[in-house]
Design a protein around this nucleic acid. Structure first.
Lengths: 193, 193
DNA sequence: TCATCCCGTAGACAGTGTCTACCTCCGACT
DNA sequence: AGTCGGAGGTAGACACTGTCTACGGGATGA
């Protein structure tokens, strides 16, 4: 019944979708193609996902969970101190967005997901909570939620604009790194305070 | 031949597309529906736009031009001083993104546009150029392109995350304003330096 | 007058998401 | 043991999409 069931068709459909979006991008996530890759007819998914959107949402939830895991691991593995942990979190976030482009794209394609109803916002919440907590410790004088929200927005914007080439800089060799450090320095203050 | 022709079918198709995306959002921009609204058969657009993507790109170019106009007007109308002009530019940018959601969404849906080939990046460039110029005057010690890029990314992220509800703050009444001022203060320094 | 294109029509085709009728097991109940 | 019922998947229809191709018609130019 839940996504943890690794045997049933439900899980196989989600698996196929994750592979597909990773390999081919969000626009490849056709209901019929997912069914094909899962080895069933195009009508079968309807048993478990009444609509295409619900299947895509289940796939996106996998992405949010993945990102959440990476973020938690990064924070735990970083040197202590909120600033270093935030840096690690931000690096992992951008790395995820740029290495798992298809999945990241899906995760923020609100027209493809049941964004408003339960599920997705809840899944992305824990990462934002740690973001708020760490941001509050770095700059106690600021509104932690605003600070964290602005920082998240900055990361998201870098991922999107850099990710598909809207934003090209003179220093192409460095990639997105200078943007990331600029964002961190701006919102959190320079590294050595 | 160009988008400026207000009589031919080419311009009528773009007009219909702009109205449609404004009223119904990006996913409503069907080739056939645009043709219907322009009063022609579904095969007619092919004369002027060999593919769906090219028609959508022409519509998006209208959006970029509109945004560019608003930005220029905002900068011209603001009090002198780069910081005030940047604030006005940022406000206009966010206002555009949130009031013209469908068009803004289309403008950054790279899977729908001929993003790489000529046209779109060039259209969004002048705004970025003024962004770079103003940013360089506010903080001469920083790399202007990096600074402008990071700020643009922040605006874009706020527009996206706030725009469809990924980012909800405690202070719902204020809307996105605190995020905007946080971003401006972070990248440009507080208002009174 | 007649030939030539420009420009739009109309139909076909494969592919899509959704709906519905059916079929085929397998387990439970009498 | 025999039968019933429903869970779970199949298959076909439907309306819609983007693209392609054959066709028409009307103005323009030789």
């Amino acid at each position: 019944m839940s996504d943890l069931d690794t045997t049933g068709l439900r899980a196989r459909l989600i698996d196929a979708g994750v592979e597909l979006v990773t390999a081919e991008g969000a626009q490849a996530l056709t209901l019929r193609e997912i069914a094909r890759r899962a080895g069933v007819s195009h009508g079968a998914p309807r048993r478990y996902f009444p609509t295409h959107v619900e299947l895509l949402s289940a796939i996106a939830r996998r992405g949010f969970a993945d990102l959440q895991n990476r973020a938690a691991k990064a924070v735990a593995g970083a040197e202590t101190g909120p600033r270093a942990q935030l840096t690690a979190l931000a690096e992992v976030y951008l790395d995820f967005a740029l290495s798992q482009r298809g999945m990241y794209e899906l995760m923020f394609r609100h027209d493809l997901l049941e964004s408003n109803r339960l599920g997705l916002r809840e899944t992305s919440l824990p990462m934002f909570a740690t973001l708020v907590e760490l941001a509050g410790r770095v700059r106690p004088e600021a509104d932690a939620r605003i600070l964290a929200g602005a920082l998240w927005a900055n990361l998201h914007g870098i991922a999107q604009l850099w990710g598909w080439g809207s934003l090209r800089l003179a220093t192409d060799a460095d990639g997105h790194a200078p943007l990331l450090t600029a964002a961190l320095d701006a919102h959190l203050g320079p590294e050595e305070r």
